[in-house]
């Protein structure tokens, strides 16, 4: 219903080469590790076609961080509505894998004639219920590439 098989065609090599931004961001001055939440969202915004991104808690519907435009014009409403969708996917046995470590669902993809929505669940080592929500324009966006890169960003956010 929400998540279907990805297209089989992999992104073209030149597309991949053009996305240098998906390399780990340079370390900040000082000893502490990056990226934090803001850096992660800004990195997601550098994906081709990215319009907006948010880090959302799917139990409460709270946006812990937002950047760029909000689908529908309001980040808080978008976060609450995306959280509904994420929770439905995470709680229904139809979409989940039993007994797997980490989140029961990897991502949820919604497309409409204008844009893609990509929700990527984040596997934190502490108890949480968060996902990254990336809103991509359909003309410029590359769904397959964005899905791979968002997965990498989600991992780097919590693993460093």
């Amino acid at each position: 219903m929400f998540h279907w098989k990805m297209p089989n065609d992999s992104p073209l090599p030149h597309t991949l080469r053009s996305v240098g931004v998906t390399q780990p961001s340079p370390r900040r001055e000082g000893s502490h590790a990056v990226p934090g939440i803001d850096e992660c969202l800004l990195e997601a915004m550098r994906l081709p076609g990215a319009r907006g991104a948010a880090l959302v808690d799917w139990t409460s519907g709270l946006a812990l961080g937002t950047v760029g435009e909000a689908p529908g014009g309001d980040h808080e409403t978008a976060a609450a509505e995306a959280a509904e969708l994420a929770r439905l996917a995470a709680e229904h046995g139809t979409f989940t894998v039993q007994g797997a470590d980490g989140p029961p669902v990897e991502d949820v993809i919604v497309s409409n004639p204008d844009s893609y929505h990509l929700l990527r669940f984040i596997d934190t080592s502490f108890d949480s219920s968060v996902f990254l929500h990336l809103w991509l324009g359909r003309e410029e966006g590359n769904l397959a590439l964005a899905r791979i890169r968002l997965g990498e960003m989600a991992a780097r956010l919590v693993l460093g």
Binding site: G30, S31, H32, A33, V34, P35, G36, I37, E39, C40, L55, L64, T124, S125, F126, S128, V130, R156, L157, V158, L159, G160
Partner: peptide, 12 residues
């Protein structure tokens, strides 16, 4: 500061 935890995880 110690880098024991990734910044993103700690912020979250």
């Amino acid at each position: 500061e110690s880098g024991l935890l990734p910044a993103g995880a700690l912020e979250l």
